[in-house]
């Protein structure tokens, strides 16, 4: 018998109250989301992977934990063993053993090889999702990522939060 999903908002709200923190400012978007129709079959589409699990490549500067709105460009040809993580808000044990759980690069490369999707963009895009300012995400990070998606001619964006 399936159990209901964990209620993270309620749980974290209770925890903050217990610890005497200011309530967290959850984002509630109540308007109908923007909609872009899919224009090509998957097998002809170029897919961009965007992941918020703090993934970086060995040799790159790691993320910091104070509202870091920077992002990394990870070549999609990257060696999986060169992937690292830096994030404070989830258990990174499995991500560090096997990055595909939060950064499914081998999974996607396999599906390109099978012909299920057409291609990947030259880079995947990663950031550290523990950013407390929704405004900075909206005004800084999201537009910068969007312009990269356009520059790399992505047909589809696949977001992988943690």
């Amino acid at each position: 018998m399936a159990e209901a999903p964990v209620e993270y908002i309620a749980s974290i709200t209770r925890q903050y109250a217990r610890l005497g923190y200011k309530p967290y400012g959850w984002v509630y978007n109540t308007d109908t989301p923007p909609w872009q129709p899919v224009k090509k079959p998957l097998a002809q589409s170029r897919v961009a992977l965007i992941a918020s699990g703090g993934i970086y490549r060995r040799g790159q500067v790691a993320f910091h934990f104070k509202d870091d709105t920077s992002f990394r460009l990870i070549p999609t040809e990257v060696r999986t063993e060169d992937l690292r993580t830096a994030h404070f808000a989830y258990d990174q044990t499995d991500a560090r053993r096997e990055p595909n759980v939060v950064f499914p690069i081998d999974t996607l490369r396999g599906l390109v090889h099978e012909g299920f999707i057409g291609a990947l963009t030259e880079h995947a895009f990663t950031f550290m999702g523990g950013i407390y300012s929704a405004r900075r995400v909206r005004e800084d990070l999201a537009p910068a990522l969007t312009s990269r998606l356009v520059a790399e001619r992505a047909d589809l964006a696949l977001l992988v939060p943690v």
Partner: peptide, 10 residues
């Protein structure tokens, strides 16, 4: 569980 959005390790 959080940290496994794309599946189980290996």
């Amino acid at each position: 569980p959080l940290g496994h959005t794309a599946g189980k390790p290996f």
